[in-house]
Simulated assay, not measured.
Amino acid sequence: MTLGVAVIGTGRMGADHVRRIDSVIGGARVAAVADLDADRANAVAAGIEGCSVHTDPAAAMAAPGVDAVLIASSGPAHEPALLEALAHRLPVLCEKPLTPDPAAALRVLEAERRLGRRLVQVGFMRRHDREYQQLQLLLENGTLGHPLLLHCRHRNASSPSFFTTEMLIRDSVVHEADATRWLLGQEITSVQVLRPRPSSLAPQGLGDPQLVLFETSGGAVVDVEIFVNCGFGYEVRCEAVGERGTASIGGADGPVTRSAGRAGRAIPQDFTVRFADAYDREVQAWVDATRQGRVTGASAWDGYAAAEVCEAGVRAQRSGERIPVQLADRPALYA
């Protein structure tokens, strides 16, 4: 069976997923797309045989040949799209965040719990990155001993004009929140945010960079440098420090070019370059599992937990205090 996918949202991420499903991965086809901007949706769907175009996500999900849904719209639009997909009992791959706030995430969890089966996977693509998977294996098998520290860097060359200080946490550090929980197998129990003097390269009013500190249920401490106007490129790094050793990922790779009296490596300029393979692997794994009636990858519970961490992070930004993370009771569906 070729999986017919409705892609909701045809902006930068949605258009990239349409391209990926249509021409990169196997076992799926783009059956429908939906976007409030009809011209953009039509442009993305152009040339894809049998792909219907809609401005209403519900209409796209109900279109002929749709077996599953990929949600790539903006965060605030995720909850209604997720609830609609669950009402249709359609498997879903939802780009992060699951929802922008924990209350909405809990409503999605409850809708999925009532169905009695998992249908939602959250698009935390770092779980599908080869380096992150290697680091997770080292931590899981005890090669490094008990994990004590994670040192994380998350840098962007520049931020879009609409980016806010709160989005540093909800749209960027959310990745480190999920990666921390997944790498360590522990919950994040508190968040603190330290704010140095803003960079002169940051837009007016944007508190960039920041240092975010997580404490975990297993006694580890995680520091995250978030710097979205570093100026030189896109860089994501992580170093795990254990009792018996350390391991680092995200360092320089690729060929060294020597020319005109200089030597150096290229630095990716955005996430679509650095994590291109991870996105391909993530969507292929989702398609393969969905065709077999399974759900793998980050669950709706993982999306909810990340939302709670981000909520505490935003409060920590505003107060300067160490803010505890309080999670709801985990439903048996996600045990």
Rank of each mutant, 00 (worst) to 15 (best):
A87R: 13
A87H: 06
H88T: 03
R89F: 01
R89H: 08
P91K: 02
V92M: 02
V92S: 03
L93I: 01
C94M: 02
C94I: 00
E95I: 03
K96H: 01
L98V: 05
T99K: 06
T99W: 01
P100G: 08
D101Y: 11
D101L: 13
D101E: 14
P102L: 07
P102W: 06
A103L: 14
A104N: 12
A105H: 02
L106D: 10
L106H: 10
L106W: 15
L106E: 15
V108S: 06
V108C: 11
L109W: 02
L109E: 04
L109N: 05
E110D: 12
E110N: 13
A111Q: 04
A111Y: 03
A111V: 04
E112G: 06
G116F: 01
G116M: 00
R117M: 10
V120E: 06
Q121K: 04
Q121A: 15
V122F: 03
F124Q: 06
F124A: 08
M125H: 15
R126A: 09
R126L: 12
R127D: 14
R127P: 00
H128T: 10
R130P: 12
R130K: 13
E131D: 13
Y132T: 13
Q133G: 09
Q133I: 10
Q134R: 14
Q134G: 13
Q134C: 09
L135G: 07
L135Q: 10
Q136I: 04
L138M: 13
L138F: 05
L139K: 03
L139R: 01
T143W: 04
L144K: 02
L144Q: 00
H151Y: 12
C152I: 14
R153C: 10
R153N: 11
H154I: 09
N156R: 13
S158K: 11
S158D: 14
S159V: 14
F162Q: 15
F163H: 12
T164E: 09
E166K: 07
M167T: 09
M167N: 11
R170G: 08
D171C: 10
V174Q: 12
H175L: 11
H175Q: 12
H175V: 09
H175G: 08
E176S: 15
E176K: 10
A177C: 08
A177Y: 03
A177S: 15
D178I: 07
D178H: 15
A179F: 10
A179N: 14
T180R: 07
T180E: 08
T180N: 08
R181W: 05
W182P: 07
W182M: 11
W182G: 11
L183R: 09
G185F: 06
T189A: 07
T189C: 07
S190N: 09
V191H: 05
Q192P: 01
L194G: 12
R195G: 08
R197W: 03
R197A: 11
R197H: 11
P198T: 09
S200P: 09
L201M: 14
L201G: 12
A202H: 00
P203C: 07
P203K: 04
P203I: 00
P203L: 04
Q204N: 11
Q204P: 05
G205H: 01
D208W: 02
D208Q: 00
P209R: 02
P209V: 02
P209E: 03
P209C: 01
Q210T: 05
Q210H: 00
V212F: 02
V212L: 04
V212D: 01
L213C: 07
E215Q: 14
E215T: 13
E215M: 00
T216M: 01
T216I: 02
T216N: 00
S217Y: 04
S217D: 04
G218K: 03
A220I: 03
